[in-house]
Computed example of a mutant assay.
Amino acid sequence: MNNHSTTSSHALTGKVALVTGGARGIGAEVCSQLAALGAHVVVAARDKTKAESMAAALRQAGLLASAVQFDVTREEDRQAALESLEKAHGKLDILINNAGIWLDSANAATPPDRAPSEAPPSVVRETFEANFFASIFVTQTLLPLLRRSDAGRIVNVSSIRGSLAHLSNPKSPVYPIKALGYDTSKAALNAFTILLAEELRGTRIKVNAIHPGWVRTTMGSEQADLDIADGARTTVQYATLGENGPKGGFFYLDVSLPW
C-alpha cells in the first residue's frame, strides 16, 4: 500500500463508514474494501433491496455491514440515516459522498448532444441536486456524528472533470467532451471541499476530494481505463488517512490535482 493508506488488514476495526451510492459500481467496491479492512460499512442506496443485498453479501463473507435506504436528494432519507446511525452506533467515522449521476449524454465517453449554451435546464438542475447539493446536505446532516469520531474522514468523490485547469487546457484528456451539468457540479463540489476543510482545519476531521480515475462502470463506459477495483483505490486511500495525512486537497492516488 502507499504511504497514505492504512497498513493493517484490521486497521478500521471499530470504525463505522457510510457510503452513498454503495450498492453498485465504485460505491459497492468501496464498501467491500472498507469492510475488508475491518470497518462496519453502512451501504446507503436509493434501492433498498439492492442495499440490503450488498450488505448481506458482505456479512456472508464474514464482514460487518448493514443497509439503509438513502436517496441523497431527500431530506427525509437524510434524517432517517442520521437517526439510524445514532441509534446503532452513536457516531460516524467515515463518510463517502460517492452517489452521483451523469445526464449530459449516454456516458462519459459520449459527447453531449448539445453545447453548454444549449444544455437543457432540467439536466443541469437534476445533476446539481445529486452531485452537489446532496453532498452538502448529507454532510451537514451527519457532521455531528463525525465530530464524535476520534479520526473523522470525509471523502467527496469528485472528478478530474471538475478541475477548471483541466477543462480549460486543450492538452487535457477531458477537454474534448464539454458536459455542462456534470463538469460544473463537480467543480462546485470541489469548492465545497475547500470551504469545509478550512472550517474543520482545527478539528480531527479530514476532508478531501478525489478523482477515482476513468472507471469501467455504466457511467464511465466500457472504454474506460480502470476496472472497478482500481477505481475504488483512491477513495479508500483517503478514507483511511493517518493522523499526518493531507486535508483540503484534490487527489488521484498520491497525485495532487489542480483545482
Rank of each mutant, 00 (worst) to 15 (best):
G62F: 06
W102P: 05
R78K: 07
P111T: 00
L58A: 08
T110L: 12
L63C: 09
A115Q: 10
R114W: 13
I96Q: 03
E75V: 11
A23M: 01
A130L: 10
V138I: 10
A44S: 11
D77R: 14
F137I: 00
A88D: 12
V30Y: 14
G100E: 04
A134V: 09
I96P: 10
K48D: 11
T127V: 04
A39E: 01
G27L: 04
I26G: 04
H89Q: 02
H89F: 14
K50P: 15
L64Q: 11
P116A: 00
V123L: 08
A99V: 04
E76S: 13
A57S: 12
L34H: 08
E126P: 13
T73E: 11
I136T: 05
A28Y: 06
C31S: 04
A106V: 07
A61M: 12
N98W: 11
Q69C: 14
Q69G: 14
A51S: 08
A134K: 02
V43P: 15
E86L: 07
A80W: 11
V41M: 05
F70W: 07
M54F: 07
F133T: 00
V43N: 05
A134W: 03
S66M: 08
E83V: 12
R24Y: 12
E86W: 11
A61F: 13
A119W: 08
V124E: 10
V43D: 04
T73M: 09
S122T: 11
H40A: 06
S117Q: 07
G27W: 02
I94N: 03
P111Q: 00
A99P: 12
G100C: 12
V72K: 03
F70A: 13
A35K: 06
R59C: 11
S122D: 05
I101K: 01
L85I: 01
Q33V: 08
K50I: 07
R74C: 03
A65H: 10
V138A: 00
S53G: 13
S53V: 05
A23I: 03
A28D: 07
S84T: 08
F128M: 02
H40C: 09
K87R: 13
P120V: 03
F128Q: 00
L95K: 02
G62I: 04
Q60H: 15
D104G: 09
Q33P: 10
A65Q: 06
P112T: 00
A88W: 14
A57E: 07
A61Q: 13
N97F: 14
A57N: 06
S66C: 10
A57T: 03
A130Y: 13
G25R: 02
E129T: 02
C31W: 01
K91Q: 03
I136M: 10
G27Y: 07
A61T: 05
M54G: 11
G27T: 08
M54N: 02
F70C: 11
